[in-house]
Design a protein around this nucleic acid. Structure first.
Length: 608
DNA sequence: ACAACTCAGAGGGCTTACAA
DNA sequence: TTGTAAGCCCTCTGAGTTGT
């Protein structure tokens, strides 16, 4: 019986040994050949990448030979598999598209064709994520998070630095904008006194003219203004498209009209040639291919119309401070934000992104200029905000009365795309669907985004932390041990054990030193059978002799100048895990050694 | 009493250093 | 260039401890 068990054990052990060796050999072959191929491919211009982003080796390299085992092709990294991002396997089905590994970000000027080619690029050879997708996602995130240009640049630099080389991420935000076809500065940050509209320096804590203290974080105010501004942009775009605003004749018009739309209580400023017909004090305009009748409240220059609109809004808003309270009340009244509303906000931003980043810039320069001015114009911003608040305030008194929105006019060719982008949510108003803006939904959405970002960043930092810790632990001269040191602490010059100075043992780091000490202080059998002191009764293995282990503590602390105060922490956090692993591995080694000896003996016996 | 948490052992897999 | 050994990391499991 005993012999049968022993034979089985030996067979299992030898099988494991063979398996292990086979695996190691296969692994080394794969990675060596892969590394060579990678280097060669990257160094040569004839490297290619498939549609899925995988490197394709030059014809001289037989990928089948290089990779005896076909494994899964790389996919876009997810949050859960970041630890496996270094695993790079290539499937031989990915042999197609040429890869342009030239770092286009080096060049500031691009031709249109080269831009298109670059946009189709992957972020780097080891991912399926395209540069275009990343750029859009990144810009979207920056906008959602209200990240400043400076910080955006910092994030971009960080991402570029941590990605594998070569990668196609632009070096700065300007290049990233250009890569997306955005050649204008879309947003200039200004601090404006809400009371007198005076530009205020960022160093001021109060408006120099009216003395109002600047409050840096009026969240509800900001959220309301963002929503209102979006709507204003959309309406302007609608008006532009529906009335042929983009053509040169429209731009050349110097006569503007301030129009009031009674159906949704909105005010728009339109050039004269965008108005289809005048009937007394009414104007007929085409919006969304529908005739809309508006009351002309003013006519003249653009600035005049803006001023009058502002005054109209000021009249409506006699007590500015009531607005925030009203919005809060509105929040309470509409406490349960519907999914549709949240979905609208998301889609609304999507559409606006597209609008700002692509459509606007494709219009003629003067139109672009004007649209951008509108975006950056604080007066527009504030006036829209007030209009929006007034609108909300009116909603308080009649919650059943819907806020109608003007749907952006889309051409026939684009109508389907527009529907797709809007996702068929409350944002589409073909059927006059009603829309209510609930700031609570905005806040919850912002919170959700913030939490998601925080979680992602935390995971990344944890990952980096582990890597960094691992690197620093391997560095003998690193400063991480400084945490466990105290100034002016004296140490003995020798730690004698059996007439041998343990400090004279050379090691590359404290882990190595600890292992060497264990080998010095204990026999192989002890290392194979025992666990670290102080063991517990519940462990079947006995602890190593504690008296000798004290020599180890003393030698390590002395050699690395570790303070008595912090040594226990150093030991438990840094050294102990290494020694525990060492004992574990030592057991593995000795078991393997024994099994090999037994196999050899049994083979000798069988042959004799 | 039970769940949640902590700690240590064990095993498998991956990386790196080194020698043949 | 290749194979091997050692170290390290990760995960699972079991047992004890702690808090409710």
């Amino acid at each position: 019986m005993m012999n049968i068990d022993l034979a089985d054990a030996l067979e299992i052990a030898s099988e494991k040994k063979r398996k292990k060796l086979k695996y190691n050999v296969q692994w080394n072959r794969q990675h060596r050949r892969y590394d060579e191929s990678m280097n060669e491919a990257i160094n040569n211009n004839n490297t290619a990448v498939s549609d899925s982003g995988c490197l394709v080796f030059p014809p001289s390299i037989n990928t089948n030979d290089a990779l005896p085992v076909t494994v899964s092709k790389p996919t876009a990294p997810t949050d859960n598999d970041t630890a496996d991002e270094d695993e790079l396997f290539y499937n031989d089905e990915d042999i197609n598209t040429p890869l342009d590994l030239n770092d286009f970000s080096e060049n500031d000027e691009y031709s249109t064709s080269s831009q298109l080619e670059n946009i189709k690029q992957r972020l780097h050879p080891f991912t399926d994520v395209s540069l275009e997708a990343f750029s859009h996602e990144f810009l979207h995130l920056l906008r959602k998070s209200n990240v400043s240009k400076t910080h955006a640049q910092n994030y971009l630099t960080l991402i570029k630095n941590i990605l594998p080389e070569p990668n196609s991420i632009p070096k700065n935000m300007i290049q990233l904008y250009r890569q997306l076809g955005i050649n204008e500065n879309l947003f200039t940050k200004r601090i404006v006194c809400q009371n007198c509209l005076l530009n205020i320096s960022s160093t001021n804590i109060a408006c120099p003219r009216c003395g109002i203290i600047i409050i840096m974080s009026n969240t509800s105010n900001v959220a309301s203004r963002v929503i209102a501004r979006r709507q204003q942009l959309r309406q302007q775009e609608t008006a532009h498209q529906s009335t042929g605003y983009g053509n040169s004749t429209a731009i050349s018009s110097s006569q503007y009209h301030l129009l009031f739309f009674g159906d949704n209580e909105e005010r728009l400023i339109l050039p004269e040639n965008n108005i289809k017909k005048f009937i007394d004090d009414k104007a007929i305009v085409m919006i969304d291919r529908k005739r809309k009748i508006a009351t002309i409240e003013a006519q003249g220059s653009l600035s005049l119309c803006q001023a009058i609109r502002q005054s109209k809004l000021d009249e409506l808003e006699q007590i500015p401070n009531i607005i925030n309270r009203d919005i809060d009340n509105f929040d309470v009244d509409n406490g349960g934000a519907s999914d549709n509303e949240q979905q609208f906000d998301e889609n609304d931003e999507e559409v606006n992104d597209t609008y700002i980043h692509s459509q606007v810039l494709k219009q003629q320069p003067t139109t672009v200029q004007r649209t951008l001015n509108d975006i950056n114009d604080p007066s527009t911003d504030i006036s829209v905000s007030k209009r929006r608040r007034t609108h909300l305030k009116s909603q308080l008194h009649d919650k059943n009365r819907p806020i109608k929105r003007l749907r952006p006019l889309v051409h026939d060719d684009d109508s389907e795309n527009e529907e797709t982008r809007s996702g068929g949510t409350a944002e589409t108003t073909n059927t006059g669907q009603q829309l209510q803006v609930n700031p609570q939904a905005i806040y919850s959405q912002i919170d959700g985004l913030f939490n998601a970002m925080t979680n992602t960043i935390e995971r990344r930092f944890t990952h980096f932390d582990k890597k960094i810790e691992r690197l620093t632990q391997n560095n003998f001269y690193d400063h991480s041990l400084d945490l466990f040191r105290e100034k002016d602490e004296t140490f003995e010059s020798t730690v004698m054990y059996q007439n041998e100075d343990l400090l004279r043992i050379r090691a590359k780091d404290y882990g190595d030193y600890g292992r060497l000490l264990l080998r010095k202080l204990y026999s192989k059998q002890e290392l194979a059978e025992c666990i670290l002191p102080t063991g517990h009764q519940r462990y079947r293995r006995p602890p190593l002799d504690n008296d000798r282990f004290e020599y180890l503590h003393k030698a390590v602390a002395t050699k690395f100048r570790l303070s008595n105060l912090h040594y226990s922490q150093f030991y438990s956090k840094l050294l102990r895990p290494k020694l525990a692993d060492f004992l574990n591995d030592e057991r593995k080694r000795q078991n393997k050694e024994v099994s090999m000896i037994m196999i050899t003996d049994s083979n000798d016996n069988s042959t004799s």
